[in-house]
């Protein structure tokens, strides 16, 4: 178990030091359909991509598409931060990118469907506003894919 108060002082100060103000004006979208009818996409900031894709640079605000039908076991990670565990992700992709869990939810009828493409960013070394252009691009792609809700995972 890890809480911020359990971390070494320098690690704690670094993470709390990121205390940033809210991103722009607050937005709130009301759900207009039950979860069982929703189309859901996954977005992670874990720096994931397939081996043939270009790996993430030292700092990098671009994104990589993760087609839903591709075998997620082939996903690798080129995140720049050395400050988190890789062993868990090597054991199980779903620990970071729970695509199999979401496929199970679709099979069980708990959610409507999954996006045809999911996305990964690499969250390190840049301030949030550096991602504005690429996140707008992804938002556009999600709308085109008729996605209702996005499940976000950090790393």
């Amino acid at each position: 178990m890890v809480r911020i108060t359990d971390l070494p002082e320098d690690e704690r100060e670094h993470l709390i030091g990121k205390k940033l103000p809210p991103l722009g004006p607050q937005s709130w979208t009301k759900h207009d359909k039950p979860l069982t009818d929703m189309r859901v996409a996954l977005i992670t900031t874990a720096g994931l991509h397939f081996r043939d894709d270009e790996s993430f640079d030292f700092t990098d605000a671009t994104f990589r598409p993760i087609p839903c039908e591709e075998d997620s076991r082939n996903l690798i990670m080129s995140h720049s931060s050395a400050n988190f565990d890789r062993v868990g992700f090597a054991e199980d992709v779903n620990l970071v990118f729970p695509i199999d869990r979401f496929k199970e939810l679709v099979s069980a009828g708990a959610i409507g469907s999954l996006a045809s493409v999911h996305y990964s960013f690499m969250g390190a070394g840049l301030m949030p506003n550096a991602y504005e252009q690429s996140t707008r691009e992804v938002a556009h792609l999600l709308k085109r894919d008729k996605v209702d809700a996005v499940f976000l995972t950090p790393v």
């Binding site: 809210p22 991103l23 868990g88 620990l95 949030p128």
Partner: peptide, 21 residues
């Protein structure tokens, strides 16, 4: 501080947002 619309805080180690492999 950043106030995303909906967020679930978990006490898991960095690198393990879903908790257990």
């Amino acid at each position: 501080s950043m106030q995303p619309p909906r967020s679930l805080w978990v006490s898991f180690p960095l690198g393990r947002p879903l908790g257990v492999p």
